[in-house]
Design a protein around this nucleic acid. Structure first.
Lengths: 162, 162
DNA sequence: CATTTAAGTCAACATGCCTGACATAAATCT
DNA sequence: AGATTTATGTCAGGCATGTTGACTTAAATG
């Protein structure tokens, strides 16, 4: 096997796996007239209620002009609410409504189903290895910010070599 | 830890990791006036020289109307060549040119760098676990076709439980 | 009071995907 | 041979998601 076959296989698996991973929510979102961009907003607002617009832009790494129509649609259709900041009234603190929480949970359930089925079919250490790998793929300078965002790892984490 | 924290962490890691994974090639492609769609075409044609347009459409899961402008640009700029099929002259067999092979290799090197650095920082079994996971994420009905496409696994594969 | 900050808006544009309809040439079936 | 199917290409129109640049508004801060 050529030396680059390993990396080719990983690259192609990532492509096909990520497409599968996003497929179910994409299909579900269609019935609401929403797309993947709406999913991302809903997910992170649901995960961090009260976040500011600027925080969301940082996480998504898009411009406010890109976010604007997506956020407006989510607000107009009653999935997200904006509240004036308590201490700084320029801020629009973002919250999911009950409907938004429901949709966000439904979308997560679709992805959870796929991920948990995969993990259940594989040996127990898989999850820790996979998470360590995914984390190591992220730019070193971004890892701290991402780690601060993620739910804590329970245990069995794979530590990077020194 | 809430039961859904695990899946939330995996979902978010996949999002951030995939964004990082595509970032370097995206940036490199910009200087050619190309996008991610061109990368995918270049990659698969390079991997399977002589493939037909219909094969490419199947793999990418897009319509020929979506592919057409992307393929035309790659042909016009001298990265891909089309040759009449030897046995069936309706077919346009796709091949990368020398320049196409070079660009494809350059893009792969960027992703290889990221992946291999990640694997090198982690215990040896990581690669097998990661690949088994990515494969298990793919729809069961698509796995056979994907497996046929991928370079063979050398050894140390993680077998799914029965 | 001047400046900065948070957010929103308007315009123009590019990419990458879609559906639908139709065209062409070559292979295949009857 | 003639009809049909197949492989590919093309035209038209549309939608989602992103970009840059310029500007506005309101509120906080120096």
């Amino acid at each position: 096997m050529a030396p680059s076959d390993d990396v080719t296989r990983t690259i192609e698996l990532l492509f096909f796996a990520y497409r599968a991973f996003t497929h179910d929510p994409d299909a579900h979102l269609e019935s609401y007239g929403f797309g993947r961009a709406h999913h991302r907003v809903l997910h992170f607002v649901s995960r961090q209620p009260g976040m500011r617009v600027a925080d969301l832009l940082d996480i998504l790494a898009i411009t406010k002009q890109s976010l604007a129509p997506v956020l407006k649609q989510l607000v107009d259709k009653g999935f997200i609410e904006q509240h004036e900041g308590a201490h700084d009234r320029r801020e629009r603190r973002l919250h999911v409504t009950a409907a938004g929480a429901r949709l966000s949970d439904d979308l997560k359930a679709l992805q959870a189903q796929r991920l948990e089925t995969a993990f259940a079919s594989l040996p127990a250490p898989t999850r820790a290895h996979v998470e360590a790998f995914l984390f190591a793929i992220i730019d070193e300078q971004d890892r701290e910010a991402v780690a601060a965002l993620l739910p804590d790892v329970a245990s069995g984490g794979i530590d990077p070599k020194r």
